[in-house]
Amino acid sequence: MRILLGIGGADDSLQALARTVERAVEAGDELTVAIIDEGGTERSVEEIESAVTETLEENGVDAEIRYVAGDPGSKLVDVAESEGYDRIVLGGGTTSPMGKIQLGSTAEFVLLNSHVSVTLVR
């Protein structure tokens, strides 16, 4: 499958990265990683990028890395639909102090608008 993984700076994105790369090794997925600059998250774009390259190298996966600026949700959907991806993968949300799952605005937009299947990693 051709997978478009969108990741930002929150913990759920790093979990999605690890699991998606593992699955790419098992299933032979063709992976593109889109780094989203959301601003105001725990990690900078540079930190996300180094986590991505490290995970890819550890698992021996070759993936294209892209950068998504502007409105990340609509950009991800546009890229996935116009370039023939089979699936968009995103982090499954952060948790509140109470433990409630909270979806970010990017995931909400993608879920409601994408005509390509979407996976949220939990």
């Binding site: 948790t95 433990g99 409630k100 799952i101 909270q102």
Partner: peptide, 8 residues
């Protein structure tokens, strides 16, 4: 009656 994943 769960809400946003809680109670587990």
């Amino acid at each position: 009656d769960r809400a946003q994943g809680i109670p587990p």
